[in-house]
Amino acid sequence: MFLLVLGAILFLPLFMPLDPLALNYTAILAPPGSEHLLGTDAMGRDLLARIVYGGRSSVMIGALVMVVTALVGTLIGVLAGTSRRLDGPLMRSMDVLMAFPVLLLALAILAALGNTALNVVFALSLVYIPRTARIVRGEALVIRSQPFVEAAQSIGASRLRILFVHILPGVLPALMVQETFLFAYAILGEAGLSFVGLGLQPPDPSWGNILGEARATYRTAPWLMIYPGLALALTVLSLNLLGDGLGQAIDPKRRN
């Protein structure tokens, strides 16, 4: 399902002339039809084009957030899980960030820094890093107490060797599952920020600001909310199903 969504937003413009910014005042709020497959918005812009290009923005931001949180969260989690001296300060810092609602903290960061795409990535990464860090720390604590790690320590293996050869490979399965879910959360978070006007700014489309613009006309033009909402829901659902499937494949205890 995710590959279908990804294929549509990446390759559909190769087969159809789509321009998300082209204005057509003779086709304002045109319903879905042969000329505009998903209809048009209040400025006559083709909704299919805006969903396709908005999907690129939303998925790109979600992917960048996933990569940043994976790198930084893994670093913090591994350091906390393998160093008793760093464990307390790092985890208390993560607890402070987790004490705030995710979108509320992201909104505050964007209000302070400005609503650019880079700042959206930074804000969402900052609020989701603690989730990854806590999961990686828990896995690192378990692996650190395993006999093979103690055996490596007993023969004089360096801390870096133990970290990269024994602990990091052990946390990767849980990290893969977590980041798949976080990919979906980041896409949904970006949509929420754009919906209230603090994410990507018009005329650049994203699923969130397309839905935000549809608030004024959804009674007379329900397709403006149905189709982008469906694209967002399918993408988030597919990533959640993918994460659940990975979890069952990686963890034998979840298969039953």
Rank of each mutant, 00 (worst) to 15 (best):
Leu107Ser: 15
Ile143Asn: 00
Thr116Ala: 08
Phe164Pro: 00
Phe100Met: 06
Leu103Thr: 04
His166Glu: 08
Val102Gly: 15
Phe148Lys: 00
Ala133Phe: 13
Ser145Asn: 14
Val127Asp: 10
Gly170Tyr: 04
Gly88Leu: 15
Ser93Arg: 00
Leu163Val: 10
Ala99His: 09
Val165Pro: 00
Met91Leu: 12
Val171Gln: 05
Pro130Val: 10
Ala70Ile: 09
Leu107Gly: 12
Leu110Pro: 03
Ser125Arg: 03
Leu105Thr: 13
Ala123Ile: 03
Val72Ser: 14
Gly81Leu: 11
Leu79Ile: 15
Ile129Lys: 03
Leu141Met: 10
Arg92Lys: 14
Arg144Met: 14
Leu107Asp: 05
Gly138Lys: 12
Asn115Glu: 08
Leu163Tyr: 10
Leu118Met: 13
Leu75Tyr: 15
Val165Met: 09
Ser93Asn: 11
Arg92Glu: 12
Val142Ala: 15
Gly81Glu: 08
Asp95Lys: 05
Ala133Lys: 12
Asn119Arg: 06
Ile155Pro: 06
Asp95Ala: 02
Pro169Gln: 04
Ser158Asp: 11
Asn119Ala: 07
Asn119Glu: 07
Ser158Glu: 12
Ala108Cys: 12
Arg159Cys: 06
Ile76Arg: 02
Leu103Gly: 04
Met176Ile: 15
Pro101Met: 04
Thr74Tyr: 04
Leu175Asn: 11
Val142Ser: 15
Pro147Trp: 00
Ala106Val: 09
Gly81Lys: 10
Gly77Ser: 12
Asp87Trp: 07
Thr116Trp: 01
Asp95His: 02
Gln146Ala: 14
Pro169His: 07
Leu124Arg: 02
Pro173Ala: 13
Arg131Glu: 02
Ser93Lys: 00
Tyr128Lys: 04
Arg159Asn: 13
Leu172His: 06
Tyr128Cys: 01
Val142Gln: 15
Met98Pro: 08
Gly156Leu: 05
Leu90Ser: 11
Gly81Ile: 04
Ser125Lys: 01
Gly73Thr: 01
Ile167Cys: 03
Arg159Pro: 09
Arg85Pro: 14
